[in-house]
Design a protein around this nucleic acid. Structure first.
Length: 108
DNA sequence: TGATTGACCAACT
DNA sequence: CAGTTGGCCAATC
């Protein structure tokens, strides 16, 4: 199966357990290219095109900041989804980010 | 078809 | 210490 880079991104994101989050760089690095972290964000932008059920809200930047919240249709949706999973979010930043951080390279 | 951008990260100046 | 640049892959102009 010759899956493209962004296809693999979707696979990883879909495997993020409930109540957990990860970062763009972590996924990109797990795939073998730390520089492709931008592609991860781009892939999330079109995630609904591939599969609208992709939990893109569980993917944040390295600082745990909800940088892509604007791409969920309306700002605030991303925070609502995270809080719905028991994750505390304040000022567009995840509290105890390390506690909820899920590294694909550790699980996969 | 070449150049630019994109929800980032890390290193260098 | 803060600003800039390089890097990666794919899509859009």
């Amino acid at each position: 199966m010759e899956e493209s880079f962004f296809i693999k991104v979707y696979e990883v994101v879909q495997r993020i357990p409930f109540g957990k989050v990860t970062s763009y760089g972590a996924i990109a690095r797990y795939l073998g290219s730390a520089g492709s972290s931008r592609m991860v964000g781009w892939a999330m932008n079109h995630s609904h095109t591939f599969d609208p059920q992709i939990p893109a809200h569980r993917v944040v930047n390295r600082n745990g900041m909800l940088t892509g919240k604007h791409h969920f249709g309306d700002p605030g949706i991303m925070q609502q989804l995270l809080e719905n999973e028991g994750i505390q979010v304040e000022d567009d930043c995840i509290l105890d980010f390390q506690k909820y951080f899920w590294d694909p390279s550790l699980e996969l």
